[in-house]
């Protein structure tokens, strides 16, 4: 039993082993009926989001939420976009650097931990991993105190820094397991015989074959930075924070504009959904990697 299946391998293993070509019997009718029923349940909230976001005026109401819009209008999309636009772009400035920087750190750490069995490496690794599970409330109060005492302004740069730090454990884990299972010992050994130092080996031999690992960590970190609310609410505000804060202000209002809230929720989810649809296989890889063991 190896710790954490290498994410890409886990994804490959999701592929069906054989095609279903049996004739339709009663069992398979039940099977398809269930599959479709669950499909509808999962899509139900999405349906409400989409139809409501195109409604206007009296069309919008709790009791009529399942109806299609009587008059389709994009007015609410325009309204939601105007109140989310700034934070939407700010969130890219947050999520992209976080994804890239923490992946690089993770790759370096993962490489070291997968090859150099220094004494106590296991303990160190476990201590790093624990950082992945802590409830961030347990560090948030002093964290904010440090940030304000040092006079660091709240907002995106602060959040980038913080997300990179707390992203180290998961990225290290993903890369360690990637290297442990896909990079042959001989490759590293050959480089050493050639006289390459650790950094040279890492930079010239390991990094170029790490792209699948990077795709996984980048997607993972991008998604979690994009969707984060807790760090955002502590270390930024509606004026300089990411989109989750702005959406909460838009949708958490008294008698909120439901159509605009729903359009806003869709706008907020769009980038991560696009990443998910385009890079779905690796996205799942990231999810799998989140499990310490599989």
């Amino acid at each position: 039993m190896t710790t954490v299946a290498v994410p890409p391998a886990a994804v490959e293993s999701l592929a069906p082993r054989r095609k279903a070509k049996r004739p339709f019997g009663p069992a398979s009718i039940v099977k398809y009926a269930l599959a479709i029923l669950f499909l509808l349940i999962v899509l139900m909230p999405l349906y409400v989001l989409i139809v409501t976001s195109f409604k206007s005026g009296g069309d919008i109401g709790v009791t009529s939420q399942w109806n299609l819009p009587e008059h389709w209008t994009t007015a609410s999309w325009v309204k939601a976009w105007s109140s989310l636009r700034d934070s939407f772009f700010r969130t890219f400035q947050l999520a992209i650097p976080v994804a890239v920087i923490s992946s690089l750190i993770g790759a370096a750490n993962g490489f070291v931990l997968s090859r150099w069995r220094f004494p106590g490496a296991d303990v160190v690794f476990t201590l790093i991993l624990f950082g992945m599970f802590i409830p961030y409330q347990a560090v948030m109060i002093p964290l904010r105190e440090i940030v304000t005492t040092l006079g660091i302004p709240p907002g995106i740069p602060t959040l980038v820094f913080v997300h990179c730090i707390y992203g180290i454990p998961i990225c290290t884990l993903i890369f360690r397991n990637y290297y442990a299972t896909t990079v042959p010992e001989e490759l590293v050994e050959a480089a050493r015989v050639d006289g390459a130092g650790l950094l040279r080996t890492f930079g010239w031999i390991i990094l170029p074959i790490s792209i699948p690992g990077f795709v996984v960590t980048i997607i993972w970190q991008f998604t979690s930075a994009w969707n984060d609310y807790l760090f955002a609410i502590f270390l930024s505000n509606t004026r300089n924070g990411p989109i989750t804060i702005a959406l909460n202000a838009l949708a958490g209002a008294q008698s909120p504009d439901y159509a605009a809230s729903m359009a806003g929720a869709l706008i907020t989810s769009l980038p991560t959904l696009i990443v998910y649809v385009l890079l779905g296989r690796w996205f799942i890889g990231g999810l799998m990697a989140g499990s310490v063991k599989s």
Binding site: V48, L49, D228, N248, F283
Partner: peptide, 10 residues
């Protein structure tokens, strides 16, 4: 792929 903040709205 959706954040809790966004899904909470609906």
């Amino acid at each position: 792929a959706v954040s809790f903040v966004a899904s909470g709205v609906v």
